[in-house]
Write a protein that binds this DNA or RNA. Structure first.
Length: 788
DNA sequence: TTAGGGTTAG
């Protein structure tokens, strides 16, 4: 009796001895040695010991050992099943994990418990397809574990991982009891899915509802406030952390560092960073990213050096935070050396790193370097495709952007970012049929609730000439931000409807949305293109005095444009003299344009002299000045200006016009003979010219540009591309059909006049988008009121 | 009937 007691006592202690030994094991060799000891002492069939061993092996990434141990046990219990299901899940083997779960359900009499579901569902989040998790969620409800807090938290987290925010919210709302972890899971999911404002609401509900929060809660909510630049709310959390003693928690401190640096409170951020006794990698990353996003590149680099000196390893976030994506100007060299560092350390192969490099090179107009990096990156993510496509779009290489988009479609399903940039490409190109196709795609992918996507759609329809379609979409939008309003206001400006733009601006103010600099610019722009001088002046006054907005160079330029076009050139000049900022090329350019309309040669000379100093590469100004001299019959001067262009090899951008017939684009250049239907087109043009002459049309080229060199004369005899496009559209479309054409340059006076006549003779509505705006021609009248 | 498994965070 005594003996048995003693032996069982020894056995007990020995097993505990092994169990505690296993708990302490930190390396695989350590663990294998312990395993050998376990076998030598005959504990290889002891469930508790084997389970702990299985667990340890999987934690040390030796999942095969775990599996072998499991297989060595003839009748594993639920506990051991659970440990291995978790092991597979955490070792990137979600399929094995779920197979084991299925095996458990089908071939044993064991019943899955909360652990089984927790582990199996976390395995399910490792798949691309969400169906496994949905199924497991259903199973857990059937097994009566639907309202278990532990399982519930994991299910909520699962839905957030698949961006199924509404489903996550539904599960969260349906939980009869909520603990701190569940609330935290909800907040973190919202933050990770960029639902920052919602996360603030949930956080408030949690605190107000009396649920105990912990340091995790605060650390989770802080990034949301950082993103929203909610300094006040962030400081509230800071106070809360101080009050309850979480202020030295490293997670909370790091969150505060991010918050203060995103809110431009760099000194506070740096101070807090200094308070962290042993900053880890993530702290360093937060501080580095904080400096970078405030354009404090030097400080950013110095913290980076500190990090390297600390011996802590650098990860992809470090590099992403260090790449000056938001303000790359003048940082080509830094970017280059950073890239060399990343190539050496192998970090460059990380998708987020190469994506950040692609982005920054695109911003630096180094599009070829970006493309090279993109092509070389072994693992392309949706984000890297998006970066490259957006890069092309932003650099005006719209066709390349579109062809890359088509290529991407075979590998990835587009997300809101993708469709937003591709819509911008469509808008730039005037590619309405592609835009409509993308609209269809948006519907099929359920991206219609995204405000960015919808705003881009409004912009696309407006810029492709369908202002009615744009307005319809705009009116249907339940949520509108300042960008949405700006898009619609500038759309009316673009189409020459200044009054509607003003009406919308008033509506916007009533809706409570704060106008931005872009809003004022859009309204002023609309006034300028509609000749609304008084209204423009009122808006400018309102902007400065009622709204306290400091006008930027663009706003001044727009005012100069408004005054100048209206013939108030002296007032425009006065306005320039009173500007608080240095007048740039845009301001003088606007004045020069006005001088062109009103044939003010002397003032034109003043403006252009300033322009040649400020922007010597821009051909447009030379052409304008030369035209002014010609109009003033000062032909020698006109010729000498053109000679400057020639001497400097500043080439004029060749004009071209696009017209879509049955969704096929046709591009015409000046005097183009290359179109297969060229003969018919020119015949149609002859017929039209005859009728136009009968109706009183006079060609304007002779009067405006009298003294031209032989070469240019010939060019002028050639027909401008917009006329060819219109003639072709007349042949190809049924009588009465609206014609839409897109020109890359500003439409010339002669073509503008001709189009008016054509619209009357043929009884067609003709919509022309030129480099600046839209012209709607109907019955011989243009919507711009000859004011463009 | 005891051991052995746990979700959220900067």
């Amino acid at each position: 009796m005594i003996c048995r007691n003693i032996s069982s006592c020894y056995a007990q202690r020995d097993r505990n001895f092994f169990l505690s030994l296993l708990s302490k094991a930190t390396s695989l060799s350590h663990l294998t040695q312990t395993h050998a000891q376990i076998i030598l002492n005959g504990y290889q069939n002891d469930l508790a010991t084997v389970t702990k061993l299985t667990h340890k092996f999987s934690d040390l990434k030796a999942i095969r050992h775990s599996r072998d141990l499991f297989l060595s046990i003839p009748k594993p219990d639920l506990f051991l099943f659970n440990v291995l299901i978790r092991g597979f899940a955490s070792n990137a083997s979600p399929l094995s994990s779920l197979s084991l779960y299925t095996h458990l359900r089908k071939n044993t009499s064991l019943n899955p418990d909360k652990f089984t579901y927790a582990f199996a569902i976390s395995a399910a989040s490792g798949f691309k397809d969400e169906k496994y998790g949905l199924l497991l969620h259903a199973h857990s409800i059937i097994d009566g574990l639907g309202s278990n807090l532990y399982v519930g938290s994991i299910i909520v987290d699962f839905y957030f991982k698949f961006s199924r925010v509404e489903l996550a919210q539904k599960v969260f709302d349906g939980m009869p009891e909520k603990d701190t972890v569940l609330w935290n899971t909800m907040i973190s999911g919202l933050v990770r899915n960029c639902y920052y404002a919602d996360s603030m609401r949930i956080f408030r509900d949690m605190v107000m509802g009396g649920t105990a929060f912990d340091s995790t809660t605060l650390a989770t909510e802080l990034p949301a406030l950082a993103e929203l630049q909610e300094l006040k709310a962030g400081m509230g959390i800071h106070c809360l952390a101080l009050k309850v003693g979480f202020h030295s928690d490293v997670h909370v401190l790091t969150g505060l560092v991010s918050l203060y640096s995103k809110c431009r409170e760099l000194e506070t951020a740096r101070l807090l960073f200094g308070h962290i006794t042993q900053p880890d990698l993530i702290c360093y990353n937060a501080m580095i990213a904080g400096y970078t996003c405030n354009n404090e590149t030097v400080s950013s680099v110095s913290i980076f050096r500190e990090l390297l000196a600390s011996g802590e390893k650098v990860n992809s976030s470090t590099i992403v935070g260090l790449i000056p994506v938001s303000s790359p100007f003048g940082h080509l060299q830094l970017t280059g050396s950073l890239q060399t560092f990343c190539v050496k350390s192998g970090i460059v192969s990380h998708p987020s790193v190469s994506t950040a490099f692609v982005t920054v090179y695109c911003r630096l107009n180094e599009i070829e370097l970006a493309r090279q990096l993109f092509d070389e990156s072994s693992e392309k993510t949706l984000a890297s495709w998006n970066a490259m496509i957006a890069g092309y779009t932003q650099n005006g290489l719209t066709e390349t952007a579109i062809s890359l988009f088509r290529e991407m479609m075979s590998e990835f399903s587009p997300n809101p970012v993708t469709v937003t940039s591709i819509l911008s490409a469509c808008a730039q190109l005037g590619a309405i049929s592609l835009g409509k196709w993308v609209h269809g795609l948006i519907k099929s992918k359920n991206l219609e609730s995204n405000i960015y996507v919808l705003t881009a759609l409004v912009d696309m329809y407006a810029k492709c000439g369908s202002i009615v379609e744009a307005r319809k979409l705009f009116d249907l939008m339940t949520e509108k931000n300042v960008v949405t309003w700006n898009a619609m206001i500038s759309a009316y400006g673009l189409h020459g409807d200044g009054h509607e733009a003003l009406k919308l601006f008033t509506e916007m103010l009533h809706s409570g949305i704060q106008p931005s600099g872009v809003t004022f610019l859009s309204v002023l722009y609309a006034c300028s293109h509609a000749g609304l001088v008084r209204e423009g002046e009122e808006i400018f006054h309102y902007m400065v005095h009622n709204h306290g907005f400091e006008p930027l160079a663009e706003h001044y330029a727009c005012m100069v444009d408004i005054l100048g076009r209206a013939g108030k050139l002296e007032k425009a000049l006065e306005f320039i003299k009173e500007m608080l900022v240095e007048p740039g090329p845009a301001v003088w350019g606007a004045l020069l344009g006005a001088c062109m309309i009103h044939k003010e040669t002397e003032l034109a000379r003043v403006a252009s002299e300033r322009l040649f100093e400020l922007d010597p590469e821009n051909t447009g100004y030379y052409v304008l000045l030369s035209n002014i001299y010609s109009a003033d019959r000062n032909f020698p001067k006109a010729a000498s200006v053109r000679q400057v262009v020639k001497n400097r090899n500043l080439a004029k951008t060749p004009g071209c016009t696009l017209v879509e017939i049955d969704e096929t684009p046709h591009v015409f250049t000046c005097g183009d003979q290359s179109h297969p239907r060229a003969t018919e087109i020119y015949r149609m043009l002859d017929k039209l010219t005859g009728k136009m002459m009968e109706a009183g049309f006079q060609t304007e080229t002779v009067t405006v540009l009298h003294d031209v060199e032989e070469e240019e004369k010939e060019l002028m005899v050639k027909v401008h591309s917009e006329k060819l496009a219109i003639a072709f559209a007349l042949i190809e479309t049924a009588p009465g059909t609206e014609i839409r054409i897109f020109k890359n340059l500003r439409v010339c006076l002669d073509c503008h006049n001709a189009t008016k006549f054509i619209s009357k003779i043929t009884e067609r509505v003709i919509i022309v988008r030129d480099a600046n705006r839209f012209h709607h021609f109907k019955d011989g009248v243009c919507s711009c009121g000859d004011y463009w």
